[in-house]
Write a protein that binds this DNA or RNA. Sequence first.
DNA 1: TAGCGCTCGTTGACATGTAAACCAAGTTCG
DNA 2: CGAACTTGGTTTACATGTCAACGAGCGCTA
Lengths: 154, 154
Amino acid sequence: MAEPRWLDDRQSRAWLGYRRMRLLLDAQISRDLHRDSGLSDADYDVLSALTARQDRRWRLQELADRMLWSKSRLSRHISRMEERGLVSREECATDGRGAVIVLSEGGWRAIQEAAPPHVESVRRHLIDLLTDEQLDALGDISDIVLSNLASDDA
Amino acid sequence: MAEPRWLDDRQSRAWLGYRRMRLLLDAQISRDLHRDSGLSDADYDVLSALTARQDRRWRLQELADRMLWSKSRLSRHISRMEERGLVSREECATDGRGAVIVLSEGGWRAIQEAAPPHVESVRRHLIDLLTDEQLDALGDISDIVLSNLASDDA
DNA sequence: TAGCGCTCGTTGACATGTAAACCAAGTTCG
DNA sequence: CGAACTTGGTTTACATGTCAACGAGCGCTA
């Protein structure tokens, strides 16, 4: 490889800033979530995905795809959430191999209670700190990066 | 709690975009790093921190503070890196309890070889996709979020 | 319809993170 | 000085993630 194109000051500030923000912001929001509702990030994401469906149920594989998780990760996590009464497994009527993940009554209550303080936390640590222009810039950047990654895959 | 202040479209786009970008971008850059040089993100961060010092050595606690890692995490990670010949431990001359982490010759070579393709990966998936204005916006956002978190602590 | 290959979900073996207990070495203060 | 407290690092117990192998069921095709 020829002399690498190192990052200049502006680029370096953006990259290091992003990395450190990611490290600290996510940790803080996770801590808030866990303190306020006893849920982990992963728990919250699973419960959110389940409520996004009217019948509050997903096939395991579909849910894993949507969340960009491995099947194995989701299967293990569902087992733990099942023990805590947040979700349950049912057999799939149309596929003997299938597992259907269902939001339980307890899971519904948990996400209902967790959501308001979680939104407040996200606002306090990120959203309410930014101008509309900055929010748009963050949305734009995410779109650009994500569509670039998607085109890599193809 | 009164009716929560849910996120509007602009805010929601920024937040969900950030979350998904973080998930996919970091995974991709980690994969590239591991494929190109056999190092994990954590390995790379430790080696980078060590090279930032002229004498290429840090007290364990100081290094943990700088990286925002727990002592226990760093201690374990150093043990694994030690087995691979990337770093070594030395006793501390001024504090009998202390451990000094030293970059080894192998670690120096590893980071030298890893850095150029890593920078390319960061450029390809993030930096080179953005305009100067977007880079500045990302830097600004990070600064705002980080200084807000710092003031929370105080 | 029998066989073969693929998919679905689970699991075993292992990598890595956290929280808390622990030991040893410093430090403070009567 | 010396007991009590603090600090630095390691370790134990456990939580959670990955990869690869597995068993069971689906479905194409000969």
